[in-house]
Design a protein around this nucleic acid. Structure first.
Length: 408
DNA sequence: TCTGGGGTCCTAGGACCC
DNA sequence: TCTGGGGTCCTAGGACCC
């Protein structure tokens, strides 16, 4: 018998992930209002915050000063670097017990495909296949909670976007299934901003045009408004129907650092916002040298060379400029730094304060790929390797280029 | 004291080649 | 002298996600 499309894709999202991990490391934080991110007095933002502070209007992405204003009683902490990935790995290992089709979408978000698993999981007590899948997702959510101690929410739907929206509705610590046929009704009352792909800019534009919910968007009458938002409407419409290929997509490259197979990573970049805006050219150049060092180090650790180097510069007024240049593939600090300095000359206004600097590598190729004969003199590869060996034992800061010291 | 840092993807224009 | 398209690569900017 033909079995039609089913709601078989699941999104599992860890609730207030960084906060939850910090609470595992330090149980005294449980029940307290916690903000992970920048410390008060700095220019950073909120990375994650507990439900106790959300009650005061604190949100992730909010400037830390604003968060302090809204919740002065909260515990503010930087977070523990290096531990989150390991917890995410443990979560993934649990999920893989239930289906081989698990994808990592971000450090706290996973997609699972249960298509074809109905026979495996169906029990006599289950009213139908959907009920079986929902039961198994509740069980897996519970396993993550019990075995690791991390609260999670899960959504089930016929597409990634549906599963994602369902998991958001299920928060905190819940499960929500949207069965085939229920999609339109489920989506109808949701604010447009809840759709993955509609950000603050698009949402504002829609609201200005009198469109507030996804239901209103989908039912716009033919006319100029419908024409104006046609592309957005199409994307929402597609999310309501099962698609054929690439159902849960691929792992995000950023979370496949150790994949030795292929170099599909798109880009490597590092940027830094100064504590206070900077005018001295030596400090600008010192920071760029430091950033060049860091991206080259990361590129080498992935066996990558970059064909394109990008400089990013943000002035005090938040005006942000980028300049990029394509060069023979390299992961050598001196080459990247030299290139960045040339790009800097195109954009730097010595009269203005610099807020942020960034260096990016893109157009990456494998280390062995030789697209052009080396014309200039390049340090032998042993030099880079020797630097990296020292860092492997003592950390990135253990060995630095002299010019990097000038950034402070 | 407004507004981090790591990414991906899309668009649009211009150069250049056939 | 006037004037095609198509394709690819490069660059700059911006929206979006977590």
């Amino acid at each position: 018998m033909f079995s039609g499309p089913r709601a078989r894709l699941c999104c599992l999202d860890l609730d207030t992930f960084f906060v939850s991990v910090e609470r595992l490391l330090n149980p005294e934080l449980c029940g307290k209002p916690v903000v992970v991110g920048a410390l008060p007095g700095s220019r950073g933002v909120v990375t994650a915050c507990s439900y106790e502070v959300r009650a005061f209007g604190v949100r992730s992405g909010m400037g830390i000063a604003e968060a302090v204003r809204r919740a002065p009683h909260a515990v503010f902490m930087r977070g523990t670097s290096g531990v989150y990935g390991a917890y995410a790995q443990r979560v993934k290992a649990i999920l893989e017990r239930y289906t081989p089709e698990v994808r990592t979408a971000s450090i706290d978000e996973f997609y699972l495909d249960f298509s074809g698993c109905e026979r495996l999981y169906r029990r006599a007590a289950d009213a139908d296949d959907d009920a079986a899948i929902e039961r198994i997702v509740r069980e897996l959510r519970e396993r993550v909670q019990v075995e690791i101690g991390l609260p999670a929410s899960a959504g089930i739907g016929c597409t990634r976007a549906m599963a994602k929206m369902a998991s958001n509705v299920a928060k905190p610590a819940g499960v929500r299934m949207v069965r085939v046929g229920e999609e339109r009704a489920f989506v109808a009352e949701l604010p447009v901003r809840r759709f993955p792909g509609i950000g603050p800019v698009a949402a504002e534009e829609l609201n200005q045009a009198g469109v507030h919910t996804l239901g209103e968007l989908l039912s716009l009458p033919e006319g100029p408004r419908r024409a104006r938002f046609r592309r957005t409407t199409e994307r929402v419409e597609q999310a309501l129907h099962p698609t054929s290929a690439q159902r849960i997509g691929r792992d995000r490259p950023a979370f496949r650092e150790h994949d030795p197979e292929h170099l599909t990573v798109g880009s490597i970049s590092n940027e830094r916002t100064f504590g206070q805006d900077v005018r001295e050219r030596v400090r600008v150049e010192g920071q760029l040298c430091s950033l060049a060092e860091r991206v080259c180090w990361r590129a080498r650790s992935r066996g990558a060379r970059a064909r394109t180097v990008t400089l990013r510069l943000r002035y005090s007024n938040f005006e942000t400029l980028t300049r990029s240049r394509t060069i023979p593939p390299t992961n050598v600090e001196a080459k990247v730094y030299a290139c960045v300095l040339e790009l800097l000359a195109e954009v730097l206004d010595p009269a203005r304060g610099v807020r942020l600097l960034g260096v990016g590598l893109s157009n990456l190729v494998g280390e062995d790929t030789q697209l052009a004969l080396p014309l200039g003199k390049e340090p032998p590869p042993q030099v880079g390797r020797a630097i990296d060996d020292v860092r492997a034992r003592f950390g990135f800061e253990a060995i630095r280029l002299g010019a990097s010291a000038l950034r402070k």
